[in-house]
């Protein structure tokens, strides 16, 4: 089962390696990690997605993360109601013969074309992991030249925030 951890950390050098190190020493792969400043520039929020076949290891890593001096607050939001988004940019082979079809797919997914070259287009899409994967699959037959995907970012629904959760 995939776990989504929402972690508020000090916005300081070295914090990312400390966190990544805890996973690495247990041979744990991080599926995705997204980090950016919050409303408080001294605090960053990391959204970490990890595969946790063994719940005890997840529990152990979570506890170890919580112990880090740079970790202000950690929540495993896997069981919570949350909104999550990923962003994907795909560079697809495109010429006059298939352009219309590609634009149709883009419309269906409510994605956007953000660049158009002689033989390629770059498509941008946001959504949860499922939607982002679906658009990738749909565009695959045209020939994907390059692709970049952000990690998942997530926020718990409702009134909860970092001061009252």
């Amino acid at each position: 089962m995939k776990h989504t951890l929402s972690v508020l950390v000090e916005n300081r050098p070295g914090v990312l390696t400390r966190i990544a190190g805890l996973f690495a020493r247990r041979g744990f792969n991080i599926n995705s990690l997204a980090v950016g400043e919050t409303e408080d520039p001294e605090v960053s929020r990391m959204t970490i997605v990890v595969d946790g076949e063994d719940e005890r290891i997840i529990e152990q890593v979570t506890k170890q993360l919580n112990k880090l001096v740079d970790v202000i607050k950690l929540n495993d939001i896997t069981q919570d109601e949350f909104v999550d988004r990923e962003l994907i940019m795909i560079k697809v082979c495109c010429d006059s013969s298939n352009r219309a079809e590609i634009i149709q797919i883009v419309d269906i997914f409510r994605a956007r074309i953000v660049d158009m070259g002689r033989n390629t287009v770059i498509i941008e899409a946001t959504g949860d992991g499922g939607k982002v994967s679906a658009i990738e699959t749909s565009l695959k037959p045209f020939g994907i030249k390059e692709l970049v995907r952000t990690g998942k970012v997530a926020l718990v629904r409702g009134a909860k925030n970092r001061h009252n959760e």
């Binding site: 050098p13 070295g14 390696t17 400390r18 190190g21 020493r25 001096v69």
Partner: peptide, 13 residues
């Protein structure tokens, strides 16, 4: 600080 990261409670540069 990098070398001792997993063997210190905390470290500062």
């Amino acid at each position: 600080t990098g070398i001792t990261q997993p063997i210190t409670k905390y470290s500062y540069l």
